[in-house]
Computed example of a mutant assay.
Amino acid sequence: MHILAIVVGIIAAAGVWYWRVKAAKEVVDDVGSVVGRVQGRIRMNNFKKKAEGSALASIEDPALAAAVFLHALANEKRDALYLAEPRIREELSRIVADTDLDEVVSYAQWAARDVADARDVVRRFKPLWRRKLTREERADLIVMAETVAELGEGDDHNQKLTLVTLRTALGPEQNR
């Protein structure tokens, strides 16, 4: 009888230790899972930042940059978007070759679709425009932007701020 009690005690102790080890393994697995999810989110956020910026980061043509900016500016006033498309195409036809116009407009529409704020586009392309455009071309870009911003009913506060940002970015080169 004593032997049976000892065997049952050993089996019970082994069961308790097995349960403790299993519970510890589950805790370690849960911690590993949380760490994996956090790492995955970090990687996904980094990828999203690269993907969002890549459409604008690859642009080195000031005319294409202007096209993206004009579309982003037009996107800020949704009610005037249908009016802006032909006007933007008309403005761009003065600075882009006819053979490239459709491609430039299509890419600009696509790239501007994910732009949250047109002022970000101004900040992104300010060095490009200042480096590659003459003072007169910069003034023309400001006029194009004002033309697009005037479309539709009413004034949009974001568009006004964007135009101020553009004028400041492309204005005289003093203190720069």
Rank of each mutant, 00 (worst) to 15 (best):
P86L: 06
D61N: 11
W110D: 10
A116Q: 15
A111F: 00
A112E: 01
D61Y: 04
V122E: 02
Y107W: 04
A74I: 02
D61A: 10
L128Y: 01
E91M: 09
L92D: 00
A55G: 14
R130I: 06
A65H: 00
N75Q: 06
D61F: 06
S93G: 11
V105I: 12
V68W: 00
A112I: 06
F47S: 11
E85D: 13
L56P: 00
L101I: 09
V121W: 05
R89T: 13
A72P: 08
E60P: 06
L92N: 05
F125L: 09
E85A: 06
R94T: 07
K50Q: 14
V105E: 01
V96R: 06
L83Q: 11
N46C: 07
V104A: 05
D114L: 10
A63L: 00
V105M: 03
L70T: 08
A57H: 07
I59F: 08
E90F: 14
L92H: 00
L101Q: 06
H71F: 13
S106P: 01
A108P: 00
Q109E: 14
R89M: 02
I95S: 03
I59Y: 10
V68S: 05
A108M: 03
L83M: 13
H71K: 03
R94H: 12
Y107F: 12
W129H: 05
A74C: 06
N46Y: 01
Y107A: 07
L70M: 01
D102M: 02
A116Y: 10
R119L: 06
W110N: 09
I59R: 08
I88V: 07
V96D: 01
A63K: 05
F47P: 00
P86D: 09
A67Y: 02
R94C: 10
L73T: 05
D114C: 07
K48F: 14
A97Y: 09
V121I: 12
L101D: 04
D117W: 05
L64T: 06
A55E: 07
F69C: 01
L56I: 07
R130V: 09
A80W: 04
A63F: 03
D102C: 02
A84I: 06
A63E: 07
V115T: 03
R124Y: 01
P127H: 10
A84Q: 09
E90S: 15
S54N: 12
D102T: 07
K49Q: 15
I95M: 10
K49W: 09
S54Y: 09
D120S: 12
W129C: 00
A66Q: 02
A65I: 04
L56G: 08
A72W: 04
